[in-house]
Amino acid sequence: MSCPDCFNGSVHDGAATGTVTKLHGLDVYVAEPSSGNPPKAIIVLIPDIFGWTFVNLHLMADSFAKKKDYRVYIPEFMNGNAAPVSMLESLQKVIVPKTWYETFSKPYHVLWLLVTALPAIFFNRPGKTFPVVKSFMESLRRNEAAHLPVGVTGYCWGGKHTILLAEGFTVDSKPLMDAGFTAHPSFLSLFDDIEKMTVPVSFAIGDKDNQVNPTQAKQLEKIVLDKPDGQKGECRVYAGYGHGFACRGDVLNDDPKGAVEAEEQALAWFEKHFEGVTY
């Protein structure tokens, strides 16, 4: 399922430092360790509905690479059908208008949101896009990640794909990913998707997120904690935060503390699960 909150938030300030290349048939943003050291693991960042070019996610990839010497990839999984970033401004004017003019222009922004959101949701439905994600991950494991741990982190739309990958797909007897992290995932089939996971995944969910409410988060946590050793996950609920807080902020709470802590949660999870992994 999807919701208006999937399209809210803000564009972050900063200049990305990575590069763009072609990898396994897809355009990919690449962030390399700034230390000059060889990467100790590969992270595939699966974006939210705004796609692989969104500067907020580029900055996040740069941060992951700098802090932990990871190589981070953000592939173009949407075939040019990402939602335009201009939707962020329109949605804020619909939900929290600040002037009489913004209130007066609400109908225009509502129409604009419908015209742009519905195609993005339709063309990027998981049944259509997951085969593209899975194929890229298979090629990555056979090549660049043949001898490195692989983590996948997904936000909103990308969270669904992270959880699907956690079902335990392999290639050449190696898992497509060794650990996953997702913040405010969307399009979930609760709780079937969670039950099927065999790869450990860490969840970051705001207690005001209407995609996974606090009661559902508690049930989700129980499911991932009850899994066998080697498959156990975790679920942290962020008080006062809504959908999108980890990568865009949200109209309910624009305090960046939640995003910073969610990034720390992801990095700690990967460090824990990459330790001792060799191929």
Rank of each mutant, 00 (worst) to 15 (best):
T116R: 13
N143W: 00
V132T: 14
L118P: 01
L140G: 04
G127R: 07
A117G: 15
E138I: 15
V132W: 01
K134F: 01
L114M: 13
M137W: 08
F122S: 06
F136V: 02
R142C: 04
F130C: 04
N124I: 03
S139A: 13
V133K: 04
F122K: 10
L113N: 10
G127Q: 05
P131G: 06
N143K: 11
E138A: 10
R141I: 05
N143Y: 00
A120M: 11
R141V: 09
V115N: 08
T129Q: 12
R125Q: 14
L114I: 12
L113V: 05
A145E: 01
R142I: 02
R125G: 12
N124R: 08
E138K: 12
I121H: 07
A146T: 05
T116D: 00
N124S: 09
F123R: 11
P119M: 07
N143L: 00
R141Q: 02
V133Q: 05
E138D: 00
F136L: 10
F122C: 10
M137K: 03
R142W: 00
V115E: 08
R141K: 09
V132Q: 05
V115A: 11
P126K: 04
A146C: 08
N143V: 02
F130D: 05
F122L: 15
L114R: 09
F136S: 06
F122T: 11
T116W: 05
F122D: 07
A145N: 01
A146D: 08
M137F: 08
F123L: 13
R141H: 02
R141F: 01
N124G: 05
R142E: 14
K128L: 11
L118H: 09
P131L: 08
L114P: 00
L113D: 12
K128A: 11
A146V: 07
T129R: 14
V133D: 07
L140H: 05
V133R: 04
A117R: 13
S139F: 01
P131H: 04
V133C: 09
F130T: 05
P126Q: 05
A146I: 05
A145Y: 00
M137L: 15
L118E: 06
P119L: 11
N124Y: 05
A145C: 03
S135K: 14
P131K: 07
T129H: 01
K134E: 13
V133Y: 10
F136C: 07
F123K: 13
R141C: 04
P119I: 08
I121V: 15
V132R: 15
A145Q: 02
F123I: 02
V132N: 08
M137R: 04
T129M: 08
A145I: 01
